[in-house]
Amino acid sequence: MTSTEEFELLFRYLKGNHSDDNLYARYANGVTSLQLSLAPKEQQQLLWCIQHPVWIGVVDYGLALHTPSSNLRKRFALAAAIIECQPNGVELYLNQKRIKSPVFKTFIWGIKAAMTMVLAKMLFLLKRWS
């Protein structure tokens, strides 16, 4: 089962703006085709993200670190794939102009990633999703 809230959350997180019904239909179709039903723990994690959307990035890292093969992470992957395959989604992954100071930006990205990993570790340690 999927909900529009779930996809809206993922879409806003990954793309930064509102979704539309057409994309939601694709997402729901994908969840059904790929049989990505959620275990009770994953349902709780998703519900928690819907209630606390500001933490979704940290949960995303936590899933990558703790349960990389979980169906919830696969749902994230599905949403990312659908968004990537939109004509306006290309800009999210491919840049048409050279990015300035790429090594410095990579370094900054690395620091941010490391901090988020620590946060995600703490969250998954403290928060008991049973």
């Binding site: 990954l14 990558a64 949403a79 990312a80 930006k105």
Partner: peptide, 25 residues
Amino acid sequence: LMGFRLTREFPVGFKSGQEFLKLLM
């Protein structure tokens, strides 16, 4: 190769993966 596939291979979130792949691809 699609970006989401590569992101799945790394222990990072998908949003963060997007930012990195723009530099990396």
